[in-house]
Design a binder for these strands. Structure first.
Lengths: 246, 246
DNA sequence: TTAATAGTGTCTATAAGACAATATATA
DNA sequence: TATATATTGTCTTATAGACACTATTAA
């Protein structure tokens, strides 16, 4: 803990502190590419260098980091992130990382369902399972590293909980959940093993004592599940949720 | 990413940024208490409030967080942390958390073997497995929360790797490794299951083609292992390292 | 009918969890 | 010898991984 003497807050220079945000989404499938894909929201810089970057902004007095993240999207992208909670991934604290001076960056990861990103699809770039841009391009500054660690963190979270980033709403089918996980992991999963394990942590949605089914899929209607047990996993349960791969 | 206009760094007030550090160790066993115990290094404040706090210090221009952590201990405790790497756990960013003004705190966790803390045992307080002080006391400010999250993080890391904080030196026996894990987890482990799993990620120390044994234990001499595979676990292996409990 | 998706049955290999036995040292 | 610790053997249970099968819808 720091010194309490009255002068202690003014003795030394202070850094500028910014938030940078990897806003990830799992995009809707297309005819050409039936699998769901991970995408990241980028900004095109208007000054040099002109490459894409993760959105960000300085933190202002009276704001939390979460406030600054929400403000970044409302001011720079015109996007309301609603109740989504950005997660701090790490601090970029190399004193030389910004040529303008001493700038710390707080990297956050945030995920939103693609339905909340309609109208700004042009700012979404596909990302592979390791966190590299699918088209082989690079982000400016140290943002390539940031994206890689964001994707890694999100993948890990999805290995431990059914839908920690709440990309699916309050009810969903196992097929929707599996599509989401395959998008996050970037690889196909075993249907039966996945379903059996996930069912341990979900409860069927009941109306009048009868299970609810989803009829939009084209095949046999799927049972609908609630997210109820999310976040209430025991330590023992958490371990078992690590996902099977093909 | 932030604006590049020349005025952007001076437009807004900047926060003071401090590091606070939960320095954890697994204390040597005593006669009264044969089990190893988790302990944390605290400072006794000289001004009010006078309770114990985690050591910390403002970050100065040109320093990384790691630099500031090392400086905290060399200046305030007279301790050289050597090559140990502090890990950032999170940022405490509530604008109201410090009555002196806008102070962000970067909480770090760091672990050192108890052999490096000789002479300052008086500043070590026992901690239970949840991260509460064993004597029921509280730390000042928001440092109780910090300690809880530090212990949780350390415990999780030890569930995923044999000795991620390098508390054991380059060679060790399975008994030493088990004592360490029991100290970190705060509960006994199954000896045979623990050994079998850990052996997958360790290699026996060989001299002249013969395995080396440790004769200090009083019973049958134990095989000595190297840490060689630490940090080189595959994803598949990492999952299997989660530990069995009694 | 066919196609598509949902869901179940079952087998094998692996490992956790548990208990017991054996091995090798010191006092 | 007794005692302490290390190490191995083995049994049961659980489950991942894999494959095949059945079920229920739409077109």
């Amino acid at each position: 803990m720091v010194d309490m003497s009255p002068s202690s807050l003014s003795t030394y220079p202070r850094p500028s502190v910014a938030v940078d945000v990897a806003l990830l989404t799992v995009g809707a499938a297309t005819d050409a590419d039936p699998a769901q894909r991970l995408k990241v929201l980028v900004q095109q810089r208007t000054s040099t260098p002109r490459g894409p970057v993760l959105p960000g902004r300085f933190v202002r007095e009276g704001e939390t980091f979460a406030d600054a993240v929400a403000a970044t999207f409302s001011e720079k992208v015109g996007l309301d992130i609603g109740g989504a909670e950005p997660r701090l991934l790490g601090m970029y604290d190399d004193p030389q990382r910004d040529e303008r001076g001493w700038v710390l960056s707080a990297l956050h990861v945030l995920a939103l369902p693609s339905s909340m990103l309609e109208g700004i699809e042009g700012q979404l770039l596909a990302v592979d399972a390791e966190g590299h841009l699918a088209d082989g391009r690079s982000l400016e500054f140290d943002h390539d590293d940031m994206l890689i660690s964001a994707v890694r963190r999100m993948r890990r979270h999805y290995e431990e909980s059914p839908d920690p980033y709440r990309l699916l709403g309050d009810t969903f089918t196992l097929g929707q959940l599996r599509d989401l996980h395959e998008g996050v992991l970037g690889e196909p999963l075993l249907k039966d093993t996945f379903n059996r394990r996930m069912k341990q942590y979900l409860t069927e949605k009941l109306v009048g004592g009868e299970p609810v089914r989803e009829h939009e899929t084209g095949g046999r209607p799927a049972l609908v599940y609630n997210r109820t047990k999310d976040g209430t996993l025991t330590e023992r349960e958490r371990r078992r949720l690590l996902l099977p791969r093909r």
